[in-house]
Every structure is written in structure tokens, then in C-alpha cells.
Design a protein around this nucleic acid. Structure first.
Lengths: 119, 119
DNA sequence: TCAATTATTCAAGGATTGTTGAAATATGGA
DNA sequence: TCCATATTTCAACAATCCTTGAATAATTGA
């Protein structure tokens, strides 16, 4: 991830509604959620959610696909991982005391490492 | 780290000059840098750097201390680590495929783990 | 084709953020 | 005390971002 993309990602995550949407989509998993459901859950108007979804897509953190009348949005896990790596590489450079504690958390969400080719 | 602080941190990092300053301060290490040197290296005016430094401090990502006539700014490693953890916990929840690749990067900056009490 | 559903786009206005240069504040030395 | 240094604060303006509601577009079923 280059600096330009990192800036766009930070900008995308710096807004309450958008952060909420990202969390929502991550926990919704790969099947994603239609725009309408996102709007309802986030309690914002359709046009407003559309504005924020476009912003998030522009940053690369989410993707969309049409499915019949609905447009389904999903979190882009690879982009999220890249952003975490950016923060680690960038900010840890020469200073393990930053990212060692962060790394300690990683196992919490990696219960099945054996099946994981590191793509 | 709560959502409010995470939002402030993302907002702080979403501006080019400020991201540059954070990178600068992290690689400068615990001794930090005086405002003037930061301004010079970032090529912005004193008043402008002051504006951004205040923003970064408000987010908790950096700290300041006066030292004679200079004001020395340093990266707050703990805050940066917390932000990385926030992104991991938040975004990995139930989806190891996000943070496993990120975790794989961690060792790159942890060459001396033995001396590290995890504070 | 017509109506209903789902969602986006657009323009307008308000709110927030960023930049600039001048004035103010704090510190230390002559 | 007076001056130089290092930095911040302030006010004004420019730029960007967010919200709203109305209009538009795409899809499906009757």
C-alpha cells in the first residue's frame, strides 16, 4: 500500500458513519450487505449512505456488486490487512516496542493458522 | 482504545503533512524533535506545523514537552500500538484472513523480543 | 408497458478543516 | 532589562466535507 492509498483509507475511516459501516461489513462477512440494510442499520438516509459507501469504495476498503435490484457491499479484507501492515511497517520501523504489543493480539483472531497460505 | 479516540487518530493520519510528521517522529525515536526542525523537514511554515502538531496531540498520537526554548514532540508508541490493535480487533473479529497476513509482518520489526516487557 | 423497489446522482447549503501572515507568549543570554 | 530565538495563537479566507431532499437510473414482476 502506498501513501496515497493509506491517506484515502485513513480519511475514509475518520468519519463515524463510515467506520460504523466498515465494522458492519466486516462482521457481515464475505456475503456482504445490500445498501438498504446498511442504511437502516446505520440509521441514515439512502442518499447519505450512498455518499459514504462511494467514499469507502473510492478508498478501496469496500467493494460492490449488483445482485438483482440490490447493490451488495462487502469489506475488502485484503485492503484492511494492507492498511494494518502499512501502519506496522511504517510506524514500527526500527521501533519494535510499537508493534510487538500489537502483534501479541494477532493470535486472538487466528485460531486456524494451519490452513492459511499467506497470500 | 475506544471508537472516539480511533476516529480522532484516523482523522489525524488522514492529512498528508500530519502523516509525514508521524513517520518523522517515529523514526526520530523517543528523543523526539523540536517543532522548528519538524517544520523545516516537512517544508511548512511554523504556524502551519503548529496547527498540525496540535491536531496530532489532540488525537493522542504524539506528545510534547518543553525543553528550554524548544518544544520537543515525540511519537506516542503506545497510542500507535493501540490504534493497530483497534484495527485488528475490530476488523479481524471472526475473520482471521484479515489479520493473519498482517501478523506475519510483525516479526520484521521485532528483532529483540527478549528485552521487552509487554507494557 | 407500467408500477414498485432499490439505489444513485445532483445541487444547494451548512459545517468543518486547512492555510496564511501578523501579533502574542515563553525562554535564555547579554 | 532588552533583545533574539522558538513557538503558539488569532482572525480571515479558501477549500473540503457532510447533509438534505428532489430527480434520475436500473431491475423485476404484473
Amino acid at each position: 500500500m502506498d501513501e496515497r492509498q493509506a491517506l484515502a483509507s485513513f480519511s475514509a475511516l475518520s468519519q463515524e458513519t463510515r467506520l460504523q459501516i466498515v465494522r458492519m461489513l466486516v462482521s457481515a462477512g464475505p456475503s456482504g450487505m445490500p445498501a438498504g440494510a446498511i442504511a437502516e442499520k446505520a440509521q441514515v438516509s439512502p442518499s447519505n449512505v450512498s455518499f459514504h459507501l462511494k467514499e469507502l469504495e473510492r478508498s478501496g476498503l469496500i467493494t460492490q456488486k449488483r445482485e438483482s435490484r440490490s447493490i451488495i457491499y462487502s469489506a475488502d479484507y485484503e485492503a484492511l490487512g494492507s492498511l494494518i501492515r502499512f501502519l506496522m511497517e511504517d510506524c514500527c520501523a526500527g521501533h519494535p516496542e510499537i508493534c510487538v504489543p500489537a502483534a501479541a493480539v494477532a493470535p486472538c483472531c487466528a485460531p486456524t493458522m494451519e490452513g492459511n497460505a499467506n497470500e
